[in-house]
């Protein structure tokens, strides 16, 4: 019976040193790793999905608190950061494009630009966190929503609403924190990629690593595209 089911296929050759032994062709290798990357991004969707779900529920439960808390964060920084990330997505896409064309120096340039923009984003995020710290808006660390609102000429909110705003800020820090963590990991990988690209590790047709990283970077951008309106924008006008 074994003979009926098995016939010989041509032996497995290794012309190409970058072809791993488990794959038959370079096409299969590239296809599999891209497919794997997308499956990984699905796990990331579910990971952030838990946070988005929690946000949705608490926003419904504590709408006034979410309005008050959301209005207290600076739309300016959020908008600038959104633009910064969108620009970094463009530079990343251009990086992949350069890799496909085999333009080594351009690849290094675009990856470098992406790294710079990513760092700018994280820097601005740091400023925002620092502001929240001075306003006593960090849950768990002497949190007091009304701390300096009077001297800033803002309306004080009732005590129960003030307590509930801590839920907003807990979610704000959990969501932006997880996002920032992904950015930091991404920046680390970028440093590695730039170093490798500089040494010519990604010739045309062997830049799957750059492409897959690009997918990751754009994904992180997409998360921010949703975080920005949910945290900064949608609660500015109370819904009745």
């Amino acid at each position: 019976m074994s003979d009926s089911q098995t016939t010989t296929l041509q032996a497995h050759h290794h012309h190409d040193p970058s072809l791993l032994v488990q794959f038959d062709t370079a096409y299969q290798q590239k296809d599999a790793s891209q497919f794997g990357m997308w499956v990984f991004l699905i796990t990331e969707i579910m990971f952030f999905g838990g946070l988005f779900g929690a946000y949705l529920i608490y926003r419904n439960l504590y709408n006034p608190a979410f309005v008050a808390a959301s209005t207290s964060i600076a739309i300016k920084w959020g908008a600038i950061n959104t633009a910064v990330l969108i620009c970094s997505s463009l530079t990343m896409a251009m990086g992949v494009h350069s890799a496909a064309l085999g333009a080594r120096k351009l690849l290094v340039f675009w990856l470098g630009a992406t790294l710079v923009l990513g760092s700018v984003f994280l820097g601005i995020k740091g400023i925002e966190y620092y502001d929240k710290y001075t306003e006593h808006h960090i849950p768990g660390a002497n949190f007091d929503f009304n701390y300096d609102r009077a001297e800033k000429g803002e309306k004080l909110v009732p005590a129960d609403v003030a307590t509930q705003t801590s839920i907003f800020f807990a979610l704000y820090f959990a969501m932006t924190g997880m996002h920032a963590l992904h950015m930091i990991i991404g920046a680390g990988i970028l440093v590695f990629l730039i170093w490798r690209a500089y040494h010519g590790a990604y010739p045309p047709h062997h830049y799957t690593m750059v492409e897959n990283f690009g997918l990751y970077w754009h994904f992180v951008d997409i998360i921010w595209i949703f975080l920005f309106p949910l945290l900064y924008l949608v609660s500015r006008s109370p819904v009745h």
Partner: peptide
């Protein structure tokens, strides 16, 4: 991944008292 984020929230809540699941702070 959903378990992962849930456990992270539990750890944050336990370590930093952020209150997402704490009824005293309005958590559910």
């Amino acid at each position: 991944p959903v378990l992962a984020i849930t456990l992270i929230l539990v750890a944050l809540e336990r370590g930093l008292h952020i209150g997402i699941f704490n009824p005293a702070l309005g958590g559910d």
